[in-house]
């Protein structure tokens, strides 16, 4: 059987992490193809329902990544995101989702190298965790 290739949904903020991903690209750095990037204006706009939907639709991992503290284009969206992620990391495990499947990172616009390292590390972690239970089963 071929190796398990996880599906990872990544919400990247326009101003920092997405720019870092651009930089990684122009710098010819590679990162695993498992990651599907969704570009958003700010991590502060990631409603918990987006993350829940991703998991219920079969995502093996979700990564939310925004600006470093103090760098948020909208002043404090990243701090608000941190509270929401904290909330979800409390709710989801109750239903059998491993906490490790949902991660928050802060990656600055100039951190292309850091970004590709994070993506590699996260993909490896999710591979080790194995497929999410929603992948094949009927979800009501």
């Amino acid at each position: 059987m071929s190796e398990f290739e996880p599906t990872i949904v990544a919400f990247f903020c326009n101003w920092c992490t997405y720019t870092a991903a651009d930089l990684a690209g122009t710098s010819r750095l590679s990162y695993p193809h498992n990651i599907r990037i969704i570009r958003i204006m700010c991590t502060g706009m990631v409603d918990p329902q987006y993350i829940i939907k991703a998991f219920l639709e079969g995502a093996d991992g979700v990564l939310v990544s925004g600006c470093r503290p103090g760098d948020c284009h909208y002043i404090n969206g990243n701090y608000k995101a941190r509270r929401r992620i904290k909330l979800l990391r409390e709710i989801l495990p109750q239903f059998g989702f491993d906490q490790q499947r949902l991660r928050l990172t802060w990656i600055g616009a100039s951190d292309g190298v850091h970004l590709s390292e994070i993506m590699r590390a996260f993909t490896a972690q999710i591979k080790a965790l194995g497929p999410s239970q929603t992948k094949l089963k009927m979800v009501i």
């Binding site: 404090n76 909330l87 991660r103 928050l104 990172t105």
Partner: peptide, 17 residues
């Protein structure tokens, strides 16, 4: 309400891989 505020130095453990 918890989701309408934040503190700068909280929940540091959940950030990062």
């Amino acid at each position: 309400p918890p989701l309408s505020e934040f503190r700068e130095d909280e929940f540091k453990e959940i950030v990062g891989i």
